[in-house]
Design a binder for these strands. Structure first.
Lengths: 96, 96
DNA sequence: CGGTATCCACGACGATACTG
DNA sequence: CAGTATCGTCGTGGATACCG
């Protein structure tokens, strides 16, 4: 449990993952989806997710530079957990 | 997702819940199960869980005082999430 | 566009001491 | 036994400015 929490922990991380589940996105795409996250934190999250092997980064050649982030196979294994987080959150709200 | 994470977030929270899933426990029981958690933090976690309606507190009359903590019906709804956290954490470890 | 570098504020956590 | 009170430290996240 600690391991899984460490993987998805930290502010914005679950929201980043939720967006990436729908498909690959660029840095700017992610920022646009999460307008209040700072570049610094977003970079930190993506770096950590990459180091954990959950997300992969792919730079396009040429200009302007573009970096595409996508879930790895390991990252896709998080999906049931994300679904369960959503389900549980909704259940809790329902009774509050 | 944010709601669910807020409910189970904070250090030790998941471990407290995991212990309570097995059955009601006293404050001292919980401390013994989690030897390195401070009384202060444990109290904070239990108070928050109680305020969220996930855990209920029952004082026994007489001396020495004893307080029993148990999951509420809402708290028991967290169990699938805890299971999923465990499963996902194990899956991540397996590939690391 | 896709980041880094720097600094700051705040809250979380831990240690210790004490109480009903 | 089951907490409360107080204090210090450290990490996290946010703002701002800048770079390849």
């Amino acid at each position: 449990m600690e391991v899984a929490l460490a993987a998805i922990g930290g502010r914005w991380t679950t929201l980043v993952l939720r967006d990436l589940v729908r498909g690959p996105l660029s840095f700017g795409d992610l920022r646009r989806g999460l307008p209040t996250v700072s570049a610094k934190v977003l970079t930190e999250r993506l770096t950590r997710l990459q180091e954990s092997g959950l997300v992969e980064r792919r730079r396009t050649a040429g200009f302007p530079p573009r970096t595409i982030y996508r879930l790895t196979a390991a990252g896709r294994e998080l999906e049931p957990l994300l679904v369960e987080l959503y389900r549980t959150g909704a259940a809790l709200l329902e009774k509050a």
